[in-house]
């Protein structure tokens, strides 16, 4: 069957423009030197596509790409590949997150091709939280790859056009490859070196976990600049609004890899309207982060505060009048 038979649902497989690896909107924004914004979508516990679009609406007007999480916190939700495919069809840029926790190398390499065929052009390689913190702690943890070997695998598929077995891929997946970093978590001294390893393995961009501790982040970035990494990879710093002091304490104690300094919690404690204070704090952090040399954008993770994302980004002024939403390639 030829493409024409399904032209209503199939878009031709486009090759990236010169100088680009994927041609995704996120890649174009970053390569043109503009400050990029990505935002995390709260995945629905539902099979209804309308719920996905509902969740994407508050993010779409300010985000260059929307991250579809892959069972984050080891909790079951709609799959990241399903969400990415739906949103891509609707004209949003998406970042398809892959965690190593649930699938082995056979499944993952196949999914990368499947996602690329659906038009997905950004991908984020993650290790994944342990199964014990999720809603099904009895699950078997897979961890066949780690995030770094996954990065190298996807890059090999894209640039060499082969699977890890060496078998040829007739049309390689044109993916803008991302990785995560957690600058404010131990081992603090080695985090930049781990970032270097991810860049060597194939990362094109980085999305960090929450930054609430600017001194720690600035120390991290200073070392990153010493290593010259900011010139080889686009770094998007993770931010998000806190709901209240209680929520912040709960996150710090229960969600792996989140560091919130006591001063931040004290500030939330003292606020008359914690929701507003959380938003203001987030805007302040975005402005401070933007001033740090080597930062290419922000990644907003506003779990259950998605309604605040537009205001936060618009008030922070980082878009400089840019309008990310528009129909086009993912």
């Amino acid at each position: 069957m030829s493409l024409a038979d399904h032209s209503d649902i199939v878009r031709p497989y486009e090759e990236p423009p010169p100088g680009h690896v994927s041609g995704s909107r996120l890649e174009r924004v970053l390569r043109s030197g503009r400050f990029a914004v990505t935002a995390e979508l709260n995945p629905p516990d539902s099979a209804d596509p309308a719920d996905v679009f509902e969740a994407a609406r508050p993010l779409g007007e300010v985000a260059d790409a929307i991250n579809a999480t892959d069972a984050s916190g080891a909790n079951c939700h709609m799959s990241s590949i399903g969400i990415s495919a739906l949103l891509t069809r609707a004209g949003y840029g998406t970042v398809y997150q892959i965690s190593c926790r649930d699938r082995n190398r056979i499944a993952i390499q196949g999914d990368v091709l499947g996602a690329a065929a659906m038009g997905v052009r950004n991908l984020l390689c993650l290790t994944g939280d342990g199964v014990a913190v999720g809603d099904q702690p009895g699950a078997r943890p897979v961890f066949d790859f780690d995030s770094v070997s996954l990065l190298r695998t996807v890059r090999t598929m894209r640039d060499e056009g082969v699977f890890l077995s060496g078998r040829k891929i007739t049309r390689p997946p044109r993916m803008f490859i991302g990785a995560a970093e957690n600058p404010c978590i131990e081992p603090l001294d080695w985090r930049p070196d781990r970032l270097a390893k991810k860049v060597a393995a194939g990362a094109d961009f980085i999305q960090t976990n929450y930054i609430f501790d600017m001194p720690r982040f600035e120390r991290f970035m200073a070392r990153v600049r010493d290593l010259g990494l900011h010139e080889r990879v686009f770094i998007l710093a993770g931010v998000g609004p806190l709901a209240s002091a209680k929520a912040a304490r709960w996150m710090r104690a229960n969600v792996p890899g989140i560091h919130i300094p006591d001063e931040v919690i004290a500030r939330m404690e003292g606020a008359a309207r914690p929701g507003e204070e959380g938003k203001r704090l987030c805007i302040e952090l975005i402005r401070q982060i933007r001033a740090v040399k080597g930062v290419a954008g922000v990644h907003v993770m506003a779990y259950r505060r998605e309604h605040q994302v537009s205001e936060i980004i618009l008030e922070s002024g980082v878009l400089e009048g840019r309008k990310p939403r528009g129909r086009g390639r993912g």
């Binding site: 290790t127 342990g130 780690d146 995030s147 970093e181 957690n182 978590i185 781990r194 390893k197």
Partner: peptide
């Protein structure tokens, strides 16, 4: 997590 390339983010 049997990681072979460095610590996770947790």
């Amino acid at each position: 997590k049997e990681l072979r390339n460095g610590p996770c983010g947790g």
